[in-house]
Design a protein around this nucleic acid. Sequence first.
DNA 1: ATGGCAGGTACGACCTGA
Length: 262
Amino acid sequence: MRTLQIASWNVNSLKVRLPHVLEWLQATPVDLLGLQELKLSNEDFPLQAFETINYSAIFSGQKTYNGVAIVYNKNSMPPPSDILINLPSYADVQQRVIGATFNDIRFINAYCVNGSEIGSDKFNYKMAWFNALTQDCKSWLAQWPKLALVGDFNIAPTDTDVHDPVTWKDQILCSNQERELFQGLLNLGLHDSFRLFNQPEKLYSWWDYRQLAFQKNKGLRIDHILLSKPLASCCTRSYIDKAPRKWPKPSDHAPVITNLTL
DNA sequence: ATGGCAGGTACGACCTGA
């Protein structure tokens, strides 16, 4: 029996947030960490900084926008195999997906499309992109029964994940259409690890930088760790670490963490 | 209805995010 700790964090620029990530990893030495919104190209990825704290990483970056990485603990994890860049069923210049297999666990890290406004071109992109993700997830599950899909989903699954459901009703991140996309992933047999447990109310993973939203806890829970049944059944804890959101120059997202006892 | 804050680009404002 050993514990596998997996996490996801939208860092909103790895260049700015690298010290945060390094400090957080040393305090919370997870085995696998999915990062989103690197906002840097591959040649600027700070691999050496991770190596010096006994982590390594695989990454798919691009200049200015998007960009994802999987950071893994070299002490506890084997090198990744079957590395995936982007969705097989959606050709995309935006770098939003990276996946790899560690032992028999398939770990997929995604920076899902935001969507901007309901009905916009970007919203249509979100719909099509999620449909591709769902289709690809189905294939992955057939090949790897132990699947973890982590990332910034840009969907608050239910009103309990929203500080003010009335204001956010039918707004981006909260619309029924988006929630149906999220449900479509659950319908494949994935489980929202956070909701495997009774949780206190009003726990969120993102807070707007403006209007003192964090201090007022005006947040949304849009970052998730989804687990296939064989992993969900050995999940022992799932939580959000608000601490880095209180640090100077924070990301607007907090890391989400799940423990598995294998 | 709009901007509000932050990061990137590039050195002007503007784009994007959620």
